[in-house]
């Protein structure tokens, strides 16, 4: 593995930039994501920084079931993210549709629209669970990087 790609991989793992997108959540999961980023939980100590645009983000944090209105927008946002990209489904709704499964305006969980790398259940997923999920995702990427020799 070349020097450059080593540096890129190192920075990718040490400082994942995330984008938060509410796909129809009840807001509880969203405030828990923000709570995870604020001082008492401080996700930033793992280098996680909240970004404002999909074009800067490595990880997309989705919360809530996918409503029919937001479906096409979610796909568009996913497509705008640069490769390699990862999606984390936060909350039971994002994992499977949760309580809203079967509602007429709900398409289902995030994975019914875009591929998902990590699932964090809970209604809402507590900040501790979110931190655990994000760290596990980073760990799994680390081992994957090592196995594949740094290639994507």
């Amino acid at each position: 593995m070349g020097m450059i790609s080593k540096i890129i991989n190192w920075s990718r793992l040490k400082s994942p930039w995330v984008l938060h997108f509410n796909t129809g959540a009840c807001n509880a999961c969203d405030i828990e994501i923000i709570a995870a980023l604020t001082p008492s939980y401080d996700l930033e100590r793992f280098g996680v920084v909240l970004k404002a645009t999909p074009r800067h983000a490595d990880v997309l944090l989705c919360s809530g079931p996918v409503t029919k209105q937001i479906e096409s927008r979610l796909v568009r946002i996913y497509e705008q993210m640069p490769e390699p990209k990862f999606v984390v489904a936060i909350g039971s709704c994002a994992c499977s549709g949760g309580v809203f499964n079967g509602c007429y305006n709900v398409a289902g969980g995030i994975n019914s629209v875009i591929p998902v790398s990590a699932y964090i259940p809970g209604c809402p997923a507590s900040p501790k669970a979110i931190i655990d999920g994000v760290v596990k995702l980073l760990r799994s990427l680390e081992t994957k990087e090592r196995k594949s020799g740094g290639k994507k």
Binding site: N27, C29, D30, G64, I70, R73, G102, N105
Partner: peptide
Amino acid sequence: YNHRGIEKACEERTYTQGVYLIERVCGI
């Protein structure tokens, strides 16, 4: 964009189930 159809879903659930669904209208 956030419309999920909770009111309709309430009609298909019992009152007790409805309490938990209505709670999820808004998490704040």
